[in-house]
Simulated assay, not measured.
Amino acid sequence: MHPQTVPSTEPPPEARRARVAVSTLFFVNGFTYTNAVPWLPVIKDSLGLTNAELGLAIAAMPFGAILTGMLAGPLIHWFGSGRTAVGTSLISLGALPFIALAQNWWMLAAALFVMGSADAWTDSAQNSHGLRVQRRYRRSIINTFHAVWSLAAVSGGLLGAVMAGSGVPILWHLAGVTAVLVVVNVAISRMLLPGPENSERADGVNGHDGSRARVPARSVLLLVMLGVLLMAAGGIEDSAASWGAVYMSTELGAPLFLAAMPFVACQAMMTVGRLVGDRVTDRFGAVAVGHASGLLSAGGLAFALLLPHPVTTVIGFGVMGLGVSTLFPLALAAAGNIPGVRTGDGVTVVGWLGRAGFLAFPPLVGYLADTLTLGSALWAIAAAGVAAFLLASALRPRS
């Protein structure tokens, strides 16, 4: 079953403008914090932090997202997804220079906590507004938004690395990035779609009149299934960053440069998958793509673990990245279209559970690795791919 019917006419001009605006919001979101990542060793030394203290400060970011992320639904309902996305993105940008201004651990952790909270709100709001634009296009475009985010994250990290390596003061760099992105955010804010959040939905939910129909039990079940699907996707996506290099160096004896390649391969193939994901979804339907994504995720990592060699490991993590690439966009799109559930609420709840997967899987794999071996522990990630395959039926479009 195809999720949308490709129209014979071009989308209206306001939808095309809004698509550019949402793509820009995704770029700003992916570009913001990644500019600071290459500076973390410098920050650690300048503040005299231990590894544990730096790790705890960085953990304030996902902690803020988990603790306050569910506020995104009410914010979207009160102010609309477009205004919420722009406003909360400005909060993230406002926190960025304070990473450079931090004089101690508490100031650094506080800046990252605010950034994590605002990032969670922006993520839900920009995806919700992206779904409004997608409904006007009458075909899948959600994957390309996430592809833009991936490209922005890589670009931000590269710019940060260049600035840190060239001796530019960290405050000049982060304040300059903030100033430019604030101007960009304000400039595109008028290009977003006007009107209430239910404008493009036939079931009329998500209005601003204060009414709220009782959510059907079937819709609640779909919400739970999609949430578990995204938890699995979060664990899969995180595994390359958290364990790829460790597995290559400790289990396979790879040198440091080669040890970084599973993460690079995973991110590169994720970007490729998101660039082609919309066309594949329109051709084969969200459920078929979800099934294939789960199989590729599980199969790619199983290939790496069954044939333990640096080359096969890099290939396996790349296949895994291709598989997981469409799970987040498609699950958020399905959550935003559940009958009887407001778009912002569905995206917020499922996205929150996805972030929980990013937090839950690293300690789980670490515990299993200490008990068994890292190679054995990573089968938990392959199992998450199987779970994604089994839950892909929840991606079927509902009306």
Rank of each mutant, 00 (worst) to 15 (best):
L40V: 07
P41L: 11
I43Y: 03
K44T: 10
K44H: 12
D45N: 08
S46L: 14
G48Q: 07
T50I: 00
N51F: 11
E53R: 04
L54P: 02
I58W: 03
A59D: 08
A59N: 09
A59H: 02
M61W: 05
M61F: 05
P62N: 11
P62A: 07
F63S: 13
A65F: 05
A65R: 09
I66V: 15
I66R: 13
L67R: 11
T68P: 00
T68E: 13
L71A: 09
L71C: 11
A72Q: 00
L75C: 07
I76E: 02
I76M: 04
H77I: 12
W78G: 02
F79E: 02
S81A: 15
G82K: 01
R83T: 11
T84A: 06
T84R: 03
A85H: 06
A85P: 00
G87D: 06
T88M: 12
S89H: 00
L90Q: 06
I91Q: 06
A95Y: 02
P97F: 03
F98S: 13
A100C: 03
A100S: 10
A100L: 12
A100K: 09
L101H: 08
L101S: 08
Q103E: 13
Q103H: 15
W105A: 15
W105K: 11
W106C: 09
M107W: 05
M107C: 09
M107K: 06
M107V: 13
A109G: 13
A109P: 00
A110G: 10
A110L: 13
A111H: 01
L112I: 11
F113N: 10
V114F: 01
V114M: 12
M115N: 14
G116A: 11
G116R: 07
G116Y: 01
A118Q: 04
D119W: 03
W121E: 05
W121Y: 07
T122N: 14
D123F: 00
S124Y: 03
Q126G: 08
Q126H: 04
N127K: 02
N127S: 07
S128L: 01
G130I: 03
G130V: 01
L131E: 06
V133N: 10
V133S: 06
R135E: 12
R135V: 00
R135Q: 09
R136I: 05
R138E: 12
R139N: 08
S140I: 06
I141N: 11
I142F: 12
N143V: 00
N143Q: 09
A147I: 02
V148R: 06
V148Y: 05
V148N: 13
W149M: 08
S150F: 08
L151M: 11
A152S: 11
A152H: 04
A152V: 07
A153Y: 07
A153D: 08
V154Q: 12
S155F: 12
G156A: 15
G156D: 07
G157A: 13
G157L: 12
L159N: 01
G160N: 06
A161T: 09
V162Q: 14
V162D: 08
M163R: 10
G165M: 09
P169H: 02
